[in-house]
């Protein structure tokens, strides 16, 4: 059986490696736009306080992931899926090639979701969604530090990632002002009581937290970055926006697969095409929920590999898990 996988995050690589464990004769083709290697996305949130992050975050170079049965196509763009012909079309090194599959696994993950009103200012703030983003942020931080004073960041978004990154920047020695649009932090994951505890914890760490703040505009010049709120301008060395994630569904959508917020699947992670599956951040299971946390995504990957080779017939059941936030010194319960 030939399985093509699009995406090299923990979902895509997880399916690839598990497939070869459970059925070593499977022929796996892994397609990714990444070039540096398979990296640990959860570690992005610790990308400032850990000085060894640049070497540590890469779990495997694509060369070392490659083995008999598993071919990696890195630095490539999958341009289209042709579901009827069961093949994909991809571009690598300026050349377009087709590849046929028996089963296709879409593990295209998610990117930073930016409120539409902020799109005109996209060049004036940064996001932290990929290793490339982290490298760029670290480069910028190094430049600011070389000027000699403490680096002051605005982090816009007091959800899970915003709080994680704010705590990490402070741990690394920077100063942070954290803006959030509603009246409490991490309102999706935490109770009112736990939000209050988190607020106290972040303030204790030295983070200036501003709640109920609607940012209206962003700007930059050679030296400073700023944001505007109620016609007032607040200046920083850098502005980082963390306002949620958006599954990458474009490829699936263009191929005519059913999509909603994510790629819609049934309880078997199967999309509206019987030969195509979706796994990880991008999969909207049973047309309902996205499971964008490490524990369920790993669980999906291991389950899907077994299911594809006929070793499990029962549907995927979400494991019991507690969302975890990597905020220095804070326990969620």
């Amino acid at each position: 059986m030939r399985v093509c996988i699009v995406g090299s995050g923990m979902a895509g690589v997880g399916v690839a490696e598990e497939l070869l464990k459970v059925a070593p004769t499977t022929e796996v083709f892994l397609f990714t736009s990444d070039r540096e290697g398979y990296y640990s996305r959860p570690l992005l949130s610790h990308g400032f306080s850990r000085t060894d992050i640049e070497t540590r975050i890469i779990l495997k170079k694509f060369d070392s992931l490659q083995r008999p049965g598993l071919s990696c196509f890195s630095g490539c763009e999958v341009q289209s899926i042709e579901p009827k012909e069961q093949r994909i079309r991809f571009r690598q090194d300026g050349k377009t090639t087709e590849q046929s599959y028996d089963k296709l696994v879409l593990a295209t993950g998610s990117e930073a979701a930016i409120p539409a009103a902020w799109n005109p200012y996209r060049a004036h703030f940064r996001v932290l969604n990929s290793l490339a983003d982290l490298m760029e942020l670290r480069r910028h931080r190094g430049e600011m530090m070389s000027r000699g004073s403490q680096v002051h960041w605005a982090v816009v978004g007091g959800g899970l990632i915003g709080c994680e990154v704010a705590s990490d920047l402070v741990k690394a020695g920077d100063r942070v002002t954290l803006y959030h649009v509603v009246d409490r932090l991490m309102e999706r994951q935490l109770s009112v009581e736990a939000s209050a505890r988190l607020l106290a914890h972040l303030r204790e760490m030295g983070i200036e937290v501003r709640l109920n703040c609607e940012v209206s505009a962003f700007g930059t010049d050679e030296k400073r970055s700023w944001l505007e709120m109620a016609k007032e301008r607040h200046e920083y060395d850098g502005v980082l926006v963390a306002t949620g994630f958006r599954p990458r569904i474009e490829l699936a959508k263009a191929a005519g697969l059913t999509t909603d917020r994510g790629i819609v699947t049934d309880a078997y992670l199967r999309t509206s095409d019987p030969h195509i599956y979706a796994v990880g951040d991008v999969a909207q299971v049973r047309g309902e929920a996205l499971y964008a946390f490490v524990l369920p995504v790993r669980n999906q990957a291991v389950w899907l590999a077994k299911h594809l080779v006929g070793q499990v017939g029962e549907p995927w059941v979400p494991p019991v898990f507690k969302p975890m936030a990597k905020i220095h010194g804070f326990k969620m319960d």
Binding site: V294, R298, M324
Partner: peptide, 12 residues
Amino acid sequence: WTCPDCGASKAD
């Protein structure tokens, strides 16, 4: 028990 760094399960 889950991974203190990333939240993966013991089985991972």
